[in-house]
Write a protein that binds this DNA or RNA. Sequence first.
DNA 1: AAGCGATGTCATCATACGATGACAAGCCTG
DNA 2: CAGGCTTGTCATCGTATGATGACATCGCTT
Lengths: 186, 186
Amino acid sequence: MSGTQEARRRDSARSRESLLRAAGELFAERGFDRTTTRDIGRRAGVDPALIARYFGGKTQLYLATVEAEHGDSDPGDLLDPERLLYILKRADHRGLVPVLQVAVQHLAEPAAEGAARAALHERLVKPLHRRFVAEGRDRPRLRAEMTVAAIIGIALGRRSGAFDELGEVAPDDLCGLLLDTLTAGH
Amino acid sequence: MSGTQEARRRDSARSRESLLRAAGELFAERGFDRTTTRDIGRRAGVDPALIARYFGGKTQLYLATVEAEHGDSDPGDLLDPERLLYILKRADHRGLVPVLQVAVQHLAEPAAEGAARAALHERLVKPLHRRFVAEGRDRPRLRAEMTVAAIIGIALGRRSGAFDELGEVAPDDLCGLLLDTLTAGH
DNA sequence: AAGCGATGTCATCATACGATGACAAGCCTG
DNA sequence: CAGGCTTGTCATCGTATGATGACATCGCTT
């Protein structure tokens, strides 16, 4: 036996996951370009060469981090307070950011870009679009895209260090102010 | 004579400006990291080695592009329709984007980052902050930073190609919808 | 215990990039 | 026209990075 669960000294699944986690963190912290496979390996405590073996390369590893974020519960749209708060917190801490970055800059490899865009649309734009349609707002599609882009700007701005208060304020405060602003007239 | 204006076969000022323009375009299109000095030189029709001579290096050239954008008229804050429209158009076409990117990602060199942040704050955050103070809104600073980050997200999202309608809609339309949303409750 | 595939380690390659310095060609001053 | 400063050109260096393949080590199966 020796359980498929317990830590074996050699465990490809464990290595894979360590790489995935480390990559998610680093891509979130520094972006795709500024993250090296050596960095990822170091943080994961795994030899960087295994990235090629288990994922195919840095780009595919990026894609894996994007897709790995899908697992998490997937409740309402971005104007749902819970959902928004979840996104903000998640983006603060780590993770999630890889998907967001594609909304704001080009990616190196077209394949990665396409996949990241698809995830962005599926997870963020589409739910919001549905809400706007249900509410009968005009230009629901454009409105949804604009809102998503705005929130992404805020989430990324928080992490960038370019803003003083925005970077420090508690997620709940920000969430309140943001929802207040976005749903003011409605 | 032979005018200091007219094209001399050798003209450092002309070379400098060609580099500056090309760099501004490329930084806007691809971001700092993905723009190489060789690309800049090629587009400018100037030998890349002159970047070092005239600016000191790629980083200082980036700073020069940021500062070069200051010249343009500097009217109201971002909630002033004219100003917003100007920003959106400018970000669509080229230029301006270098300053915006710093709001959303880290720069390689600390010096460049500091200068870009200063420009961002001076040109965008501060005017908006003044407006909110004048209007007596609560949390004027946070509100200003949040709004700037949101608009930057939208402006960059337009260029990123990650959104369908957002990337295609006319600046005037977008400007209208955006102002409508942001000033709805007020 | 032997054998074999899976897993991990390491050295190394090829490439891309920013920077530098030597050198050539041009322009202006005297 | 001669000298010297400016401007442009080119080859090259050092470094960083992603990728690859050879080799070692482990663990399961029989």
